[in-house]
Every structure is written in structure tokens, then in C-alpha cells.
Design a protein around this nucleic acid. Structure first.
Lengths: 219, 219
DNA sequence: ACGCTAGTTGACCGATCGGTCAGCATCTGC
DNA sequence: GCAGATGCTGACCGATCGGTCAACTAGCGT
């Protein structure tokens, strides 16, 4: 057995990585086993030797990300909710997004068409729980939109959105710069929904509901 | 000739609509001509009679949305920039997103794999110009992320994100409610990039509404 | 030397893909 | 009546899809 616990790259790993890139860029339906194999430097038969089917390959590709997300969520739900734990949660979540951006992008944009596959359904309920954990009680439509835009927006921006920037921009932007900017925007997006739960003493005067001013929509 | 200028549904229209739904839900690669035809109630040959190829069908599906987006952008760029014109632009943009959510979702999430198709490339440069128009001078990384999250987040939330909500929620949420909530969040996201003089935002309410002066969305 | 297992591959399969083509209605103008 | 579009279809094509299978190679314990 090649049980190499260290960082060595096994065939399985290479195939998983290549498949992930393909799934994220051309979609699950658009990525053929033959093409994945060719890019990775193997034959289609080899792919099907390591993974029972195309669906099994998808599961193997996404499962680590979903596992990690589940850990983060459980850890957050296990503690009593304070501002500190909530911030810790947001930071963990940003770590997750940055580390598993391709997996997130794959799931976010294709979950609807992949319903029925185990890991996809599992991720679906996880996203639901995540949404409830952040918006929890009296989740308004606006709160749900804030969460959805944070999730879908991050997935898009970090994967597809970058391709619109000039190559110069992409090259000169350090990961740390992206991370801190993303953090600011994410917190800005999710702040109004989080303010609600932990104002023990300090106000938020009733006149100004957190950030929002009622706006009329003509039609 | 069936030049019916009124709202009658021609075969071409039915096919376009069905194709749009399929492209948005299972992706361009995953949507087969035979399945589109079957759902619409025609044969695959009929689809290829009205549209020269699968790519031509995609172009016919996306072009109206891109045309509309181009008009909005040109109109904004033609005027001197004031708070009023900028708000008008944001409202137009939200109208656009709501009306063409499926087209936007299709383009946003599959542009990278469809590069080379005319309408996709055209949409790509349009998005670039749009980003520059909103972030214009000294666009920081954070500004670009804000724009990307607004764009990708809206596309996701309005199409895929809704599927996670309970059916009850989906049914009881009126379009107007969604629209106004989306407007608040979008402006919240894009406000800092337009009012750059404002110091780094503390989540406290008073500083939050720089350009949120209530304006009728004349539509 | 031996058998066993893991890894890899090409040949092959039925199904489906996008696309072509000849033909069948239906309607129009003459 | 009929010539010519227009709309639509089934039969068919080569290519590619996901997946199966037998065969081959290389290493390892005995």
C-alpha cells in the first residue's frame, strides 16, 4: 500500500485535483473522463480504476471541503454565541472559502442540476443549516439575501470574477491583500444580520434599524 | 410572415425560453438539444431549423439581455456623473438583474468555459466596462471584490440560492419584497466604492447611508 | 521461481451527442 | 390547379460519452 501520510502526490490525488479544476471550469456535465485523464497524464481507464464512476469521482473531489465545512459549523453551534465566537466563525468561514474556492464554486453553481448525488445533498443541508445559524431567528428576506450574496458572491469573485481583471492586476494582487479585502466586504455584508443577536447594553437606537433605510420601489 | 409584433408566443420564443431555463439549470454543456426540444414540445430537428446550431441558440438566448445591459451602461456613461445619475444607474441595473436573472446566471457561471462564442465575449467586455464604470479611478482590490460579489452574489441568490429556502418561504415572498431587499443590500455593497471619501466604515448606523437618499425608481 | 496484488492500458460496448438531409404537411399568391 | 415558401419531422451520420473487460507490467513476500 502506498499509505504515504506525508505530502506526496499519489495518482489518486493528481486525478482528484485535475478533476476539480475541470468540474469548476467547464462543469460536471461538460468535463469528460477522457479529458480529465488526458490533462492529468493518464488514460480514462485509470480514472475508472481509482474511482468507480464519474459520480464517485465528484464525491471524492467535494467531500474534503464538505467535511471541513461541517466541522466549522458544528464548532460554532457547540459554543454559546458571543461576538467573539461569531467573529471566530466568520474568520473560519473565510479560511474555508479561500482554501476550497474551487469546490465551493463547483457546488454553488451546479447543486441544482446534481441533486440526488449524496455529497451534493449533504452539502445542501449544510448550507441550509449555515444560513439558519447566521440569520437564525426572524430571518428576514433581506437577511437571506445577504447570506446568499456573501456565499454566491465569494464563490464567483474568487474563481470566475478574477478572470475579468487584467493579467497585471491578477499577478500583482497578493493572497493576503485579497484575504483582508474579502474579510472587510464579508463582514460588511453580514454585519447587519449579526448585530441583532448580541447587543446586551450598547444601543442601536430604535429609530435607525441597523443599517437599513426603508426604500420605496416604484414599478 | 408571422411578423406578430404583439405578445404572441412564436415557436422561436418558446424554444428560446425553454433553452434558457435548461442552460441556466444544467449548464450549456449539460443541456442537450433533444431534451430542450422535448420539454418545449418539439423535435430536435425543429430546434435546428430555427437555430443554425447549439451555439447560435445560446446567442439568441443571451443577446437580448446583453443588448439591454449595453444600453444601460451607455446611458450611464453618456451623462455627467452625479449622485442622482448614479442612483438611476443602480436602479436600472437592479431592474436588469431581476428581469434577466437566468441570462445573467448563465453568463456569470459559464463564461469561462464558453469563451470564443461571440455573445459571451461581448458580455465579457461589457462586464469589464461596467466594473470600471462603478469602481472607476483608483479601483482598489476591495472595490473590485465589492463589484464582483454584487454581481455574482445577485446572480446566485436570485436563481440557485432560492432553491435552498423552504417552499413556504419561496411562495410567500413577493417580488416586490425581494426587489426592495436586494436594492438595500446592493447599495450597501456598492456604497463604499462610490463614496470613497467616507472613512473605513464602522458598522454603526449613522455613517451608513451616504447615498441612500430615497429616490423613486422611475420605471 | 512462484503466485498475488496493485496499477495501467487499449479495445470494445451501447447510448447519446450535435448536426445533415430528404420528405411531408400547410399555407400563400397567381 | 399549382409553384414556392414555411414549419416540422424521422432517419441517419460520425464523434464522443460513461463504463466494462481482459491483458499486461512491475513489485513484493515466500
Amino acid at each position: 500500500m502506498t499509505t504515504d501520510t506525508s505530502s506526496r502526490q499519489t495518482t489518486s490525488d493528481e486525478l482528484r485535483l485535475t478533476a476539480l479544476e475541470q468540474f469548476a471550469s467547464v462543469g460536471f456535465a461538460g468535463a469528460s473522463l477522457a479529458h480529465i485523464a488526458e490533462v492529468a497524464g493518464y488514460s480514462k481507464s485509470s480514472v475508472l480504476y481509482h474511482f468507480a464512476s464519474k459520480e464517485a469521482l465528484l464525491e471524492a473531489v467535494l467531500t474534503p471541503a464538505i467535511d471541513r465545512l461541517e466541522v466549522i459549523l458544528e464548532q460554532f453551534l457547540a459554543q454559546p454565541e458571543t461576538t467573539a465566537t461569531r467573529m471566530r466563525f466568520v474568520d473560519d468561514f473565510i479560511d474555508f472559502i479561500l482554501e476550497f474556492r474551487l469546490e465551493l464554486h463547483t457546488f454553488i453553481n451546479q447543486a441544482q442540476s446534481l441533486k440526488g448525488i449524496a455529497v451534493i445533498d449533504r452539502a445542501g443541508v449544510l448550507i441550509m443549516r449555515l444560513s439558519n445559524a447566521i440569520c437564525d431567528n426572524n430571518a428576514s428576506v433581506e437577511d437571506q439575501i445577504r447570506f446568499g450574496m456573501a456565499l454566491g458572491g465569494a464563490a464567483y469573485t474568487l474563481v470566475a470574477g478574477m478572470n475579468f481583471s487584467t493579467p497585471v492586476n491578477r499577478a500583482t494582487t497578493s493572497p493576503d491583500e485579497i484575504r483582508s479585502a474579502l474579510r472587510v466586504v464579508m463582514i460588511d455584508l453580514l454585519a447587519p444580520v449579526s448585530v441583532r443577536s448580541t447587543p446586551p447594553a450598547t444601543p442601536t437606537p430604535p429609530s435607525a434599524a441597523p443599517l437599513l433605510t426603508p426604500i420605496e420601489t416604484g414599478k
